[in-house]
Design a protein around this nucleic acid. Structure first.
Lengths: 339, 339
DNA sequence: GCAAACTACGTTAGCGCTAACGTTTTGACT
DNA sequence: AGTCAAAACGTTAGCGCTAACGTAGTTTGC
């Protein structure tokens, strides 16, 4: 009963059960060539002995790790958390596990993370966004596994992709605000280009303003990603100081929109009467604020789920999944009282 | 240049570099017995060939996976996300990677997740909470690796623990509200016992009310975990219907507190004049709402960091780390205008 | 000037599992 | 009873790496 002794291995279980190691191995997998009676017996004995199946050894032999590697900019962002959830839930149906890494919105950290993750021999790799360092791109292209870029519609895809066009999403919101009659419109985002998808949304937004003949210079930047409510509040103060006649503002994310909303209210401005506020991400807070905030729901869980389904099909070898390489997940504009 | 050929292994790199496999192996690790010149040369050639170090093989041989397994109830909860971040950041200093699993607040799912994670031979296992199924407890106790229960102060610890007493936290907030002069006080939480830490906070809160001779029956439950703003709004409606003279309410989490706050405001009640609202978690939203919400900051990142430091010391074999088995991370009450 | 210590490599064996293939047992049907 | 799949099990070899040990060449100390 000494638990300090070396942990039991498959051969020990085999001996205890009076069968060969191979039979134990089969009992632990979905192999039909072991009788139900034997399997139950073996699993019972293994459990009793405290045997833990060793995936390291299994991996080396089978060349299958059961891992799908994923990089996200931040684990604290509820959108990415939802995508990871969608991916994890879906891949579980194929017995695949998610190996998660985060990059802090830095492509140089992504490069390191990709290297680190590839060493674990994942069966597929999901990255967020389509902007990578040269070395990272090369590693992705060389890896002999399915690569999926999500949360974007890559101009120059490495492999497959799942998501939507961020510029289109920016344009969608610009169109909404213009349609509501607003003419002097601003955009609040972070003051770095680290959040490449946020930058793309801003670009699409501003292009649409310019196309409509409106002032497309009201660009407010506030702080480093991950963007938070304080960024939005700071941005709101900048707007009131530098562009006091602004009628509407879109924020790069809902948390910032909430921060901007409360800052406007704090100084006595009425939203949307004095200024309209819109966000992105469909976070919980935007649905319950007063007024509720107009936002865009990116269907984050769906992105993860689509990526998971794609990976499942690819690993199963379905022939018809290769085209098209891009899976569109449509974002939805959720119009609320803040605009 | 055929990339379709089998991926290069260490022996291929060795041949190309004109050295033995062992030297390549050493070059890829922090082994001093390789000259800098050779190491650079080998790494350069390996990079050129597109060689990817195979950790599966390394794991099997060295019996070290470099993994620390972690279970959290939900990845979408910013508190747990912060803890995971603290853990990941800290463990990176020891070259350890986090293998994450989530349990949806269900101890039966935790049991499965623990089994799944242990098969990956992690070097330590961090679980959230101290309530486990019998089978899970047995697996944890048998695993020959450091076990750390966090986000709690276990009555019957499996191994080490890092965190704080949830009942104490509930009591802390009750004391604050009583001190502010409120007498008719309610608590909003989920209507299941899945969130065992939330249940513990509620218990500590109610006990403190009873000890002060106050009505400790105003228990509002609303929906399944993970708790969201809608739960808080629903809870607020229940309070106004069933206990209309309530003067203060604590919510199991800040998002619920925010939902309650906005629901009270929506029907014209002033917070804190008509009713005070408090939460837990120090989420971004509670600092920026109007009024800002009184909450308790659990120092989530710090919990992860402490757990990481503990694991580092344990794996390094420091003798003095074994006692005490519990590391306290003190939560802080953040008094704001909502109370 | 020579042993001792150190540096920088190479050789051998094996971690725990399972693909591939071989062997025995079972049972269905003539 | 005899035939022959199919089911149920066993044997062999090896996945790619590295601990342990061995060895040649170089430096150090006195």
């Amino acid at each position: 009963m000494s638990q300090q002794a070396t942990a039991p291995r498959m051969a020990d279980v085999a001996r205890a059960a009076g069968v060969s190691t191979m039979t134990v191995s089969r009992a632990f997998r979905a192999d039909a060539s072991v009788s139900d009676k034997r399997r139950d017996e073996i699993l019972r004995i293994a459990e009793e002995m405290g045997y833990i199946f060793d995936r390291s050894a299994s991996e080396l032999r089978t060349k299958r790790t059961g891992f799908v590697a994923v990089t996200v900019p931040s684990i604290n962002n509820p959108n990415f958390a939802d995508s990871v959830r969608g991916l994890t839930d879906t891949l579980a149906e194929w017995g695949l596990e998610v190996l998660l890494g985060y990059t802090n919105y830095r492509i140089d950290q992504e490069e390191q993370m990709v290297r680190q993750l590839l060493r674990r021999k994942p069966e597929a790799l999901v990255v967020t966004g389509s902007t990578h360092t040269g070395a990272a791109r090369q590693r992705l292209a060389r890896a002999q596994i399915p690569i999926i870029e999500c949360w974007d519609e890559p101009a120059d895809p490495v492999g497959y992709s799942v998501g939507f066009s961020n510029p289109d999403v920016g344009a969608m919101m610009a169109e909404h605000l213009i349609g509501k009659g607003y003419r002097k419109i601003a955009f609040i985002s972070g003051d770095t280009d680290f959040d490449t998808r946020g930058v793309a949304r801003r670009k699409g937004f501003m292009t649409k303003l310019a196309d409509a003949g409106l002032d497309a210079t009201r660009l407010i930047t506030a702080g480093w990603p991950p963007v938070g409510a304080s960024h939005g509040a700071d941005g709101a103060r900048q707007i009131m100081r530098d562009y006091p006649d602004t009628e509407a503002v879109m924020c790069v994310a809902d948390v910032a929109a909430f921060g901007a909303l409360t800052e406007f209210q704090r100084v006595g401005k009425s939203v949307p009467h004095d200024i309209a506020v819109a966000g992105f991400g469909a976070f919980d807070v935007s649905a319950f604020s007063i007024p509720p905030i107009t936002t865009i729901d990116p269907n984050a869980y769906e992105i993860g789920r689509e990526a998971g389904l794609l990976i499942g099909s690819l690993l199963r070898g379905d022939a018809d999944v290769h085209r098209p390489p891009h899976r569109a997940v449509a974002p939805m504009l959720v119009a609320r009282a803040s605009t």
